[in-house]
């Protein structure tokens, strides 16, 4: 039996692994590269894969800067103490300053987030956690990815990246296998 093993597809952006991070990245990438070819390869099915695939009834990191609750540096301080100093503060700060806008977008897409009826602020169950009805957290974000990607390969597990010989530090391809073969 002959298998078609090498696919040349002129892909600009290959998302290798589409949990919540990969699916979100595919959505964001579509904005910055509107004419680029974006392809997702995921070892399971993007509708139910990754850490929040089965749903999550909280978002465990939300600053609430718009409600005057926390600033990004507060979260950096918390995480540094929590992890006994073993953190990259620059990465933490960067994540913390962008996370609120991601949550606000999720709410716009339809994620049920519980609010305090008086103040309008999101209900919290901890300093950083907010309460959601998140059974469909992943299907919702996967919907955004499917709308943004040119192609989604489910059941393709990417194991290696191939570097470009002609240009240093550029990825030219990827090697994977079909998880259902």
């Amino acid at each position: 039996m002959a298998y078609k093993t090498i696919v040349e597809d002129n892909i600009d952006i290959l998302v290798a692994g589409a949990g919540l991070g990969g699916t979100g990245a595919a959505f964001e990438a579509r904005y910055w590269g509107q004419d680029k070819k974006i392809v997702i390869a995921e070892k399971a099915n993007i509708d139910r894969s990754g850490a929040v695939a089965q749903g999550l009834y909280a978002i465990n990191c939300y600053m609430g800067t718009r409600f005057g609750e926390n600033n990004p540096e507060d979260h950096v301080r918390y995480a540094r103490i929590d992890l006994m100093g073993m953190v990259r503060e620059d990465l933490l700060f960067d994540m913390a300053r962008h996370v609120d806008s991601a949550v606000h977008q999720f709410e716009e897409w339809g994620m049920p987030i519980m609010r305090n009826p008086k103040t309008g602020a999101y209900l919290r169950e901890g300093r950083w956690q907010i309460m959601i009805h998140g059974e469909s957290y992943k299907p919702l974000v996967a919907g955004a990815a499917k709308k943004s990607a040119d192609k989604v390969f489910n059941r393709i597990c990417v194991t290696h990246l191939l570097m470009d010989e002609s240009k240093p530090n550029r990825v030219a391809g990827a090697v994977g296998f079909g998880a259902d073969q």
Partner: peptide
């Protein structure tokens, strides 16, 4: 429990 507040899949913008 609700899984969405909007008609399913309609409120995600097409970024292209």
């Amino acid at each position: 429990a609700p899984i969405t507040t909007k008609p399913w899949g309609t409120c995600i913008p097409q970024l292209s």
